[in-house]
Nucleic acid binder design. Structure first.
Length: 279
DNA sequence: ATATGGCCCTGGTTGC
DNA sequence: TGCAACCAGGGCCATA
């Protein structure tokens, strides 16, 4: 389940490998509904364009695309391709003769002779094409957890009364936090997932922001968490799953106090916490 | 404003 | 051992 650190890792990897390349041909499989932009329009929009840069916004990977005029690519983006990996989506840079994995829904032939492939068994991913001549650039739904200031962070939560776990998962507040990093940062901050946001003290909100920063930063440096079968653009697994303190550790002893980790349901999501360390 | 539950979808796990 | 039922969950939607 790619969240901010996994998406950041993938975006960086793809950026390094395809920046300066050009999309020469596009193939879309029978991916029915999950395209935000219909496949034919998407294929037409992508074909011929230079890849100027690839970066992350929230859980979205944004390709900045130049002109399709080969003689005049320029440096100003004219279009964007936005990829959301959902639960099981992958972006892979391969050679054309590499075996095509099951559930490969998109293949972009690059001028360098390589391919960019989108694979997604569960089909929760979304692909969108945007022309910047017709519309505004993509903006994430919520604030960036890595750069949000303390005051802005506190302001997001103090007027609401939903469980803090639900608030962390709400992408229109903070974009990029998912189930793993919500649980881990609440553990690091010592806050119970069901606490109401408006009942959190300024001190607790400060701790939570710091914990979130620390956890996300650490996870990015370890290449993300490889639960299920996440791999980055080079097919390499991350290592942050080895650092998980609570996520998917139901019944195992808390790494701080030995109390068994508990699992409850918050906002319909499995939620893991230490009943002693988190108040 | 918030809560709940269904839907999408497949693969891994569990239960008999 | 084999097979079916079940569950995971990000985002979105309808309903309470």
């Amino acid at each position: 389940m790619p969240e901010l650190p996994e998406v950041e890792t993938i975006a960086r990897g793809v950026h390094e490998r395809v920046r300066g390349d050009r999309i020469v041909d596009v193939w879309f499989g029978n991916y029915r509904e999950p395209f935000k932009t219909p496949a034919p329009r998407q294929a037409k929009g992508l074909a011929g364009r230079a890849v100027l840069a690839v970066h992350r916004t929230g859980k979205h990977i944004v390709f900045e695309l130049g002109s399709s005029d080969a003689a005049n690519s320029g440096t100003e983006p004219e279009a964007q391709w936005i990829v959301h990996l959902g639960m099981t989506g992958r972006l892979l840079v391969t050679t054309p003769d590499a075996p095509v994995a099951a559930h490969t829904h998109a293949r972009l032939d690059l001028a360098s002779g390589r391919e960019l492939r989108f694979v997604d068994p569960r089909r929760f991913g979304r692909l969108e094409f945007r022309s910047l001549k017709k519309g505004a650039p993509f903006q994430g739904p919520g604030a960036e957890p890595l750069t949000i200031g303390a005051d802005e962070f506190a302001a997001l939560f103090h007027s609401r009364r939903m469980p803090i776990k639900a608030a962390l998962l709400n992408q229109t507040l903070l974009a990029g936090v998912g189930n793993i990093y919500a649980d881990e940062s609440l553990f690091q901050a010592g806050i119970r997932p069901r606490r109401r946001t408006n009942r959190l003290t300024a001190d607790e909100l400060g701790r939570l922001r710091q914990a979130l920063l620390k956890v996300l930063d650490h996870a990015i440096r370890l290449g993300g968490s490889s639960v299920s079968d996440y791999v980055d653009a080079n097919g390499v697994r991350g290592f942050f799953q080895l650092e998980h303190c609570v996520y998917q550790r139901t019944g195992e002893p808390c790494l701080r106090c030995q109390t068994p980790i508990r699992r409850i349901l918050v906002a319909g999501r499995g939620t893991h916490f230490c009943p002693k360390c988190q108040r």
